[in-house]
């Protein structure tokens, strides 16, 4: 189908508007054109405060992944066996897998409500770089999902008879790892935000990228139990985090633009 333009309406002001053109030009200074002033820090801080306030007011959403994590870990000893020796062997992997899935569960809502109420459009139209603003949103996600998961894991570790001495490494590896998970997951969340039911697609997109984090995270705890050095594992987790911090914000920004375009 071809749509046409009413040409009469197009030329409007240059001819018929010439009578008022002169008095407008005298008043133009009333709305001066602005230069981009920066203010990136102010905008990032305001976004942090806004998202934290929003999530703390909807506590259910924050508690969901934590409850999921606790439930899964509680059910395993009941289903498998209460034998501490057996549980201690599988504990590092179990804790890490459950934490990873809990983090994955919470990802879908990262940009969803902003997309639905139109504030994502406004975020994209802000003169500040979108990568920095989306990094602020991811930081809030980690603070209220990854960090609590990492702090909770040692307590659940007791239930799985995790050997003493590995609790610190468990919390540290999860804190480092979930930060990478939030960053990588946010790319998937940004790509699928425009889809009505993007949850499954999001998991499929993101899970392969989660595997290195899972291997080295669970590996660090395993090494701590066996008494090996954990430095190498933690260093690689740190390196993964550094790489995601460098690359993910740009990928998130680009994905958000694609989603809004669709």
């Amino acid at each position: 189908m071809h749509s046409s333009l009413h040409s009469s309406s197009q030329q409007g002001p240059s001819e018929q508007g010439s009578s008022h053109r002169s008095d407008i030009s005298q008043q133009i200074s009333a709305v001066p054109l602005r230069e981009y002033k920066g203010g990136l820090l102010i905008a990032v801080k305001a976004t942090l405060v806004r998202d934290l306030t929003l999530l703390l007011r909807r506590r259910g959403e924050v508690l969901n992944p934590l409850v999921f994590f606790a439930l899964v870990i509680t059910l395993f000893p009941i289903a498998i066996s209460p034998d501490p020796e057996l549980l201690a062997v599988i504990a590092p992997g179990l804790l890490w897998v459950a934490a990873l899935l809990a983090a994955l569960l919470s990802l879908d809502s990262l940009f969803r409500s902003d997309y639905d109420d139109g504030s994502l459009e406004q975020l994209l139209l802000a003169p500040q770089p979108l990568a920095a603003l989306s990094l602020a949103k991811v930081a809030v996600h980690w603070l209220l999902t990854g960090l609590p998961l990492a702090l909770m894991a040692p307590i659940l570790g007791i239930m799985l008879a995790l050997p003493a001495g590995s609790y610190g490494v468990l919390a540290l590896s999860l804190a480092l790892g979930t930060a990478s998970l939030s960053l990588i997951g946010a790319i998937g969340a940004a790509l699928t935000v425009g889809l009505a039911r993007g949850g499954v697609l999001l998991s499929l997109l993101v899970l392969p990228l989660y595997i290195p984090v899972l291997i080295f995270g669970a590996g660090a705890v395993q090494a701590a139990i066996l008494g090996d050095g954990v430095g190498a594992h933690l260093a690689i987790l740190g390196a993964l985090l550094a790489a995601s911090l460098m690359l993910a914000p740009w990928a998130i920004a680009a994905s958000l633009r694609i989603s809004i375009n669709g």
Binding site: L33, R34, E35, Y36, K37, R50, T53, L54, R57, R58, S113, D116, D117, G118, S119, E121, Q122, L125, A126, P127
Partner: peptide, 19 residues
């Protein structure tokens, strides 16, 4: 420069109901 001079109000008001 364009974005620094633009105010766009879309179809959705862009207002957070929780705030």
């Amino acid at each position: 420069h364009f974005l620094a001079n633009l105010l766009y109000l879309g179809h959705a008001p862009g207002i957070k109901t929780g705030l």
